[in-house]
């Protein structure tokens, strides 16, 4: 499948490096271009050095090359994606959206990877959403019902770009929605904190789940450990920093009074493809997008094979 990445910033460039590595290993995605808007961008120069097109002509380049593209990864901003999403769809290009624009169905790679393989636009939620929704889902599948879940994401200041900073509400709202829609919580809250410590801290994520009366606590813990393994399949640096714990309340949550809460303390170390390992927030996003792109490519290939038989 021929694809391009739109956005030559940190996320776009990191994804480029991942996709080119995978192409060498005969992966299904054929990355042909990195498309930005700044001719002087470091990412574009790197794209040319790595032997693919590096252009600053922005979304116009994508639309004028629609015949040569099957899929794009959009790593621009929610505003840019919202403005262009319909045009990509009209041009027959599948869009994997790494911004919090939330136009297409949300996909969390470890939870609902195969649910929307025919959608023209797929939303990757947020980095914090990719890190924490799997754990909310892990708690949910071990309980009768999950009245309330919460995530707290702390990222190093250096790894939070201007897009995140100018529009921090998009992050919390989109993430919180994912905790309900995909994680399975009835109520939710998302919090993001920036920490400027030097050397930069690793991305940290904490998940709290309100456990109703009668919950099998051992089953919750077991489910959390199993989910850690599932996410590690595509994000090797994803790990439980401490053992998950069940704390006794009671807690007066927005979903009602619960006797206990589960606390899941996560750390995400990046693979260091473009930015240093502390920027695990970028890594989990690009690794998840790659996994979704490959799943779509596999699905389309199977469809074509079926059609040609």
């Amino acid at each position: 499948m021929r694809c391009a990445i739109l956005g030559s910033g940190n996320i776009g460039t990191d994804l480029m490096i991942k996709l080119l590595k995978a192409r060498e290993l005969d992966g299904p995605l054929d990355l042909v271009a990195l498309v930005g808007i700044d001719p002087a961008s470091d990412g574009l120069a790197r794209a040319r050095r790595m032997g693919i097109e590096g252009t600053h002509e922005g979304p116009d380049w994508i639309l004028s090359h629609a015949d040569e593209l099957d899929m794009i990864f959009d790593a621009t901003s929610a505003y840019v994606h919202k403005a262009q999403a319909q045009a990509y769809q009209d041009a027959g290009i599948i869009a994997v959206d790494l911004t919090p624009a939330a136009i297409g169905p949300k996909v969390i790679a470890a939870v609902n990877l195969t649910e929307h393989l025919d959608a023209p636009n797929i939303n990757m939620v947020t980095c914090g959403g990719q890190a924490t929704t799997p754990m909310v889902y892990a708690i949910r599948r071990a309980v009768e019902n999950l009245p309330y879940a919460e995530m707290v994401s702390t990222v190093a200041s250096k790894s939070a770009g201007p897009g995140t900073r100018q529009n921090i509400d998009e992050f919390t709202k989109t993430t919180s929605t994912a905790l309900r829609e995909i994680g399975g919580a009835e109520n939710s809250k998302a919090i993001i904190i920036l920490n400027p410590a030097e050397p930069p801290i690793m991305m940290r994520n904490t998940v709290f789940g309100g456990l109703p009366e009668g919950t099998d606590h051992d089953a919750v813990i077991e489910s959390i450990y199993a989910m850690e393994k599932s996410v590690q399949e595509y994000v090797p640096g994803y790990r439980l920093k401490n053992q998950p714990v069940i704390e006794e309340g009671p807690y007066l949550t927005p979903g009602g009074l619960v006797p206990h809460r589960a606390v899941v303390l996560l750390e995400v170390e990046g693979a260091g493809d473009y930015l240093p390992p502390y920027a695990g927030n970028l890594d989990i996003m690009t690794a998840a997008a790659q996994r979704v792109g490959e799943a779509i490519a596999g699905h389309k290939a199977a469809q074509n094979e079926g059609a040609s038989k």
Partner: peptide, 18 residues
Amino acid sequence: RRQMVGGQEDMIIDVALE
């Protein structure tokens, strides 16, 4: 020592467990 900033109350549990 970890230079935690306001809002990182979750790290209190992290530190206590460690």
